[in-house]
Write a protein that binds this DNA or RNA. Sequence first.
DNA 1: CATGATTGTTTCATCTAGTGAAACACTATT
DNA 2: AATAGTGTTTCACTAGATGAAACAATCATG
Lengths: 273, 273
Amino acid sequence: MPNIKNVNQGHRSTCDDGKGVRSLQRALSLLWLVAHEGSDGLGLLALSRLAKLHKTTVYRLASVLVTEGFLIRDPVTDCYRLGLAVLDLSSSYLGNLTLRQEALPYLSDLMKEADETVHLGVRDGNSVIYIEKVRAPASVIAHTRVGQREGAHATAIGKVLLAFSDPADVEEVIAAGLDAMTKHTVTDPVQFRSVLEAVRRDGYAINIGENHEHINAVAAPIFDHTGKPIAGIVVSGLVQRLPLTRLRELGERMKTAAFAISRHMGYTRGDHT
Amino acid sequence: MPNIKNVNQGHRSTCDDGKGVRSLQRALSLLWLVAHEGSDGLGLLALSRLAKLHKTTVYRLASVLVTEGFLIRDPVTDCYRLGLAVLDLSSSYLGNLTLRQEALPYLSDLMKEADETVHLGVRDGNSVIYIEKVRAPASVIAHTRVGQREGAHATAIGKVLLAFSDPADVEEVIAAGLDAMTKHTVTDPVQFRSVLEAVRRDGYAINIGENHEHINAVAAPIFDHTGKPIAGIVVSGLVQRLPLTRLRELGERMKTAAFAISRHMGYTRGDHT
DNA sequence: CATGATTGTTTCATCTAGTGAAACACTATT
DNA sequence: AATAGTGTTTCACTAGATGAAACAATCATG
């Protein structure tokens, strides 16, 4: 059979899973590329090179994204940047999270008590993403923002969520690699598992410069009505302001706050000691 | 010429502009529908009804959006909800806004001085969208969030941005309708134009319960290097805490802060009086 | 318990509409 | 002036998105 016309296999582009609407997948990949490109934006050709798509295709997809507000085109440089639509969507997302509303007063209280910045975050695979933040007036630095991601294994909130999650999830995170963020990051799987064991025992997780050299933190888990850990609260600040004893004090305090929020979320079988 | 084969006009679906990648336009419209549906989410059929698309189409588009993280599917109700990807993107968006970084310290200072919540916002057509917020500890209510939209014509920040924008923009906003948000909203085009005139004279805009019955506010504009008003800062709070005299005091103070930020953005020809 | 209504998923033939090459336009750079 | 590097438009082709219909699964209802 010599007349093999279109063998046509094996040349899947950027994000072809074989299944799905290709143009949509491609367009979404453009969004990620632009998002991760920093504030300078990306020109048409640069974008098409990164996406490994023909420039015409990128041009049309991006044009739609522009008219829909997901991208904007810098009037002077012709570069693509993220548009306001993404803010709109995130606003809807955050506004519909009842967890966030319920937790907010507790976060404020904690912030006042600890005089440190408090975050509310959820886990998404190997990373943690912040959905609310109450900044302490005293906090000199603002190293985070709502919507930001950080590695789950190197953060207090990530550890506390993993500790109470399905062990399979933990193994996935370990398999993905316990990257060293600082010299204090726990990178050994065996040690990491025993850390989580300790977290389960304590009911809160502590982070001593494992993610950022000069930042300590302590986190407690929030559970939903099924008993799944759906989110966590975390207090973080400069090491000199948060020594171990302070972290342990706060940890106990945060357990009760987290438990109170859990109750709002329908958590019942709570023995909060 | 009787053989008109494909007349093919007039049956444009949801967002067909004729030009562009239809599947992408459709998928994006799904995002908006889900976003505006509140926390309950939308089932497949409900979504296809709203989008006026066949359920199979919605199914496939939504499936891609789910695998890409833009939507999630509630495990119990099978309803579509916004996914974490939108937070990721908004985080990138906010992180790349240098305006936001430059303005933040000024916002904090203003918050401390006024002891009221301060917002940074930009205009997008007929609405204003907040890109940063510094909450005052004293503020009892939190009626806004980053990413939220409000009508430009009924907010101090919207008015201040319009006042220094192209008059054509103003007319567009007027044409879109000056909806009454409260009984204090200026709804008469003639009166509205004279209000903007006053704003240009003062250099700041005041809002007396025009958007929310019990909220007053005062805003000042930020300009970029081309002299275009790109953003505004606004202080808002309960009417009893922000009487007119106070608003005017703050207005002057905010003009200088806004001017300082404008300078960071490359604004030069500044006669900040 | 059977029946029917409602929602979600898969399959498949049809032909729309997304694709990419090439031509075009425009601006820097040499 | 020539060349390289951009962004935009056109157009023929057919890959691949589409929607009808069948299938599955769940939930009411008589």
